[in-house]
Amino acid sequence: MFPILRHSLKRLAGQILWWGLSLAFLAALLIPFYDSIAQQQSQVTELLKAFPKEVMAFFGNINDLSTPAGYLTIEFFSYMPLVLGIFAVLVGSGLLVGDEERGTLDLVMAYPVSRAAIFWGRMLGFAIAEAAILAVTWLAMSITIAWTSLGIGWGSAALPFVSLFAVVLLFGTLALFFSMLVPSRSMAASLAGFLLVAGYLITSLATLNPDLETINRLSPWKYYQSGDAINGLNLGWLVGLLAASLIFSGLAWWAFERRDIRVGGEGGWHLAGFNLSGRK
């Protein structure tokens, strides 16, 4: 599994660098404004009240803008799963099927490596890449926080990233699972991307419309703590998100163990074929 993991990380190195530095730059840019915004809390709140409440529902409670948790939520963490979700959905959907569509999986699968090693090596590579991007961003944010009056320690600043990691991982594994079922990577990415955006809309609008609460329970976004996590993690929600990721990974693995490895042109628009005869 380790050669696969090492290779997977090598391939994702560019993405880790690009995403990590971009998000680190964004965090370092936004955090220093906290002091000036906190001083002008009343004017900023008045300004934001001019926006329709349906719009503001997507950013959290504007009255909390002067609190560290509220500021981090509104300025950064409220939309971050959507941004990193793009990375997760693209990487997750192409983790194995991308290579399959390019035809490079055929050769690797002819080597003495089990399907489980290939699957989990790639999966672990994806999780490590995501963690690395978040670690770089957290580092930049924590350094910048030290120059403000936010008063959040390095440990506390890491907690929203833990919650963010879990929710983004879930969408990545969902995309991976879809890629094992549908005929193409783009279709899997579209499906997972749709659920990512739909979950964001439902959870945001559920704060205005209680009728959406039932369906909101199915949205991973409901269990994402955003900036509030600096006051402590909801371990139940965190474990739930990680467990859901594990379940989708397990289902994707089950499917990968049983399906044919396609070469260019094979399979077409049929659903991925499985051997359900009981044998792997």
């Binding site: 050669p3 090492r6 290779h7 390019r102 490079t104 050769l107 080597y111 003495p112 070469v263």
Partner: peptide
């Protein structure tokens, strides 16, 4: 095994590709 349609990863040298494959063996 030599596949009928050989596809290699484009973003490395021949040595890089072969080092990876040797590692798998």
């Amino acid at each position: 095994y030599l596949p009928g349609e050989l596809h290699l990863e484009d973003n490395q040298t021949v040595a890089g590709e072969l080092h990876y494959l040797v590692g798998l063996r």
